[in-house]
Amino acid sequence: MFENWALQASESDSISFQDFDVEGLADDLHRHSSYELVYISAGSGVWQIGGVQGAFGAGTLILCPPRVMHAWWSGSAAKSGSRTSGIVLRFSREVLPGSLLRLPEMESLRELEKKLSAPLEFRVLDQARLRTRLNSVDRSKGVLKIARLLVALDLIASLECKQVVAEEKNKADLGSKDFARIERVKRFIEEHFRQHISRSDAARALGMEEAAFSRFFRRTLGMTYVDYVNNFRVRQAAALLGNRRGMGIEEIARQSGFGSLASLHRQFKKRLGTTPESYRKAANSEFQAP
Rank of each mutant, 00 (worst) to 15 (best):
E167P: 08
S176Q: 06
V124I: 01
Q267S: 15
G175V: 00
L89K: 00
S74A: 14
E113P: 00
G24A: 13
Q53H: 09
G175D: 11
L109M: 07
F2Y: 07
R139Q: 10
T220I: 06
K177C: 10
G222H: 06
M106H: 01
E167F: 12
A202H: 02
A212I: 15
G248E: 14
A166T: 01
V165F: 12
I146A: 12
L144Y: 14
R215I: 03
R123I: 02
A128N: 03
S16K: 05
D13N: 12
N284G: 05
N284P: 04
R245V: 05
V52H: 13
G50D: 09
H30F: 03
G248A: 11
A78L: 12
V151R: 09
S92T: 01
E105P: 03
I252P: 15
F20H: 09
R204S: 14
L89F: 00
R235T: 08
V68L: 03
V46E: 01
P119C: 00
G57I: 00
V229H: 02
I40L: 07
H196E: 14
T132H: 14
K281N: 03
G207M: 11
R204D: 12
D173Y: 14
P66S: 07
L103P: 00
R215L: 10
D21I: 01
E286K: 04
M69I: 06
L206E: 13
A78P: 11
M106C: 02
R245K: 04
A283V: 06
L125R: 05
Q127Y: 14
G24F: 14
R244L: 07
D126E: 12
C64G: 06
L144R: 13
F179T: 11
R93L: 12
R110T: 01
A253W: 13
V165R: 14
S136I: 00
R83A: 05
N170K: 04
F17M: 04
W47D: 03
L150C: 01
L7S: 01
G222Q: 11
Y279F: 15
R93T: 10
L261C: 11
T132A: 15
R67V: 03
R187H: 15
R215S: 10
V164G: 06
G175R: 06
S140I: 03
G50F: 08
K141N: 13
N284F: 14
S214V: 00
A6S: 05
L63M: 08
L116R: 14
G259L: 00
I62W: 10
L261T: 10
L120M: 09
K79A: 15
R139D: 12
S34L: 00
G273T: 01
P65Y: 13
S33Q: 13
Q53N: 13
G81F: 10
I87H: 10
N231R: 11
L116W: 13
A6M: 05
L221C: 08
F188N: 03
Q18C: 04
K269S: 08
D201W: 07
G175Y: 08
F56A: 07
I49V: 07
S41W: 15
M208S: 08
R244W: 09
R131I: 03
Y225A: 00
R90Y: 04
N230Q: 06
T60V: 01
L63A: 06
S108R: 09
M1V: 05
V52R: 15
V165Q: 11
A212R: 15
K79V: 07
R131L: 11
T224R: 02
M69N: 11
E111L: 06
R133P: 05
V68A: 01
